[in-house]
Design a binder for these strands. Structure first.
Lengths: 228, 228
DNA sequence: CGCAGTCTTGAATCTCCTCAAAAGGCGTGG
DNA sequence: CCACGCCTTTTGAGGAGATTCAAGACTGCG
């Protein structure tokens, strides 16, 4: 459950170096590539600017006092984040792979920011339904479909997208996203694999074999894909 | 689990009368008082206008194919809702008591709509953390605090708010909100009552006795109150 | 008074978690 | 190149928390 290391009380007052230096090195409208495991901003600290995710993967998360973590959303290419109001960040944002980011300046197209906000809300609501009412297997099936949609490799053949994608999330990340444990996530993924709905040789390269059956399990009616 | 009656497939094409007539009777900027159990708009149907909740209580929910329901947010006085984008409503909205609504027109103050949207998102994210990572007792404690904050009766004494509020949600509504069952909700509420943290004579009039202990259990750090 | 609905409580069951250990991948260094 | 350690993933066994099923209590209403 305690999958990340929380900054101790002292660190809560003074943000860790990694977060600090990252913000300082990035001027307005500047773009930068950030290594995996980088915290872009910390929950509870002075609000950061907004970002556009050009390429890579970012997790938005919250943490309870005792360290239990909930990943609230997983972002792929094209998504905007860090657009909150108020003095402090309501969530943390962390890269899950090498990620190309662009800092947003104030005069961002207002319609685009609004669309991004609506997307965040729709996804958060769909995720609440997943967390509150789906079984472990349904959760994992939903996650696979969502990630395939966000991270599907654009293939040469114009006809259809490849059904293979890189799983930037570890089993622990998936667990924190889906409200499960590492073991349960692993069991469900392997159950889907044994049933022939998905396939993976390496734990982080996943192929969707039977998308229809997966959608049947996931009850994906409520799950919006950012790619529309 | 199946706490509401879903419209059958035919009803999905043609919205039920109740929703229909409600929308027709409400012209722009008009206000109206709606009885409990009224569906203001249905998930999946043509998008409704936005509303301001003057007084009362509204639940925003989503339903899976087999009828499992998840209440995504509970709204009290002052909240705005129905501000989604796209052709269809991502959620349903239903009154939980006699509710005074005002339909929003197009030239709504843009900043106010944006604030409302940000509040919806922050609450949805906090609720995801609740659903994914809190125990049943923690969930119920969080819910009690949230509802007390939204529905606390403004007392005559200017010093502090009354700690008694009307619970417009039934045990079944609470269950659908917190990702639990009716029985578990009842057990947790009575456990909090026996422990002397809350009190209720009637099931729907709740008093907070020990707010500090309740917050301790709820881990309310992440839970934003709409009243700020 | 009796009925219908909600709420409460108990007992049995089940899903998922916890704990434990083994297997696999990857980089380091001898 | 292989041994070693570290980390992630997988798999199994047992246990805990929440659900399911069932029955009784309370409330409002005809």
């Amino acid at each position: 459950m305690l999958n990340i290391v929380m900054p101790d009380e002292a660190a809560r007052i003074v943000p860790p170096d990694i977060s600090n230096s990252f913000a300082r090195n990035l001027r307005s409208n500047q773009s930068k590539i950030v290594p995996p495991g980088t915290t872009i901003y910390f929950e509870g600290f002075r609000r950061s600017p907004g970002y556009r995710l050009i390429d890579g993967c970012v997790a938005i998360s919250q943490v309870l006092r005792d360290g239990r973590r909930q990943i609230v959303d997983v972002l792929g290419p094209g998504r905007l984040f860090g657009l909150s109001q108020g003095d402090s960040n309501p969530c943390s944002a962390e890269t899950l792979t090498y990620t190309h980011l662009e800092q947003l300046d104030e005069d961002l197209d207002h319609n685009e920011a609004e669309r991004a906000l609506h997307l965040m809300l729709r996804r958060a609501q769909a995720h609440a339904t997943l967390l509150g009412r789906k079984t472990a297997l349904e959760k994992v099936a939903s996650a696979v479909l969502d990630l395939a949609c966000q991270f599907a490799r654009t293939s040469k053949s114009p006809k259809r997208k490849r059904l293979t994608f890189t799983l930037y999330l570890t089993r622990a990340d998936l667990a924190d996203w889906l409200g499960l444990t590492v073991e349960t996530v692993s069991r469900c993924l392997n159950q889907l694999k044994r049933s022939g709905l998905i396939d993976f040789r390496h734990p982080e390269i996943v192929t969707i074999v039977d998308k229809g059956a997966l959608m049947e399990i996931a009850d994906a009616s409520a799950n919006p894909c950012p790619a529309e």
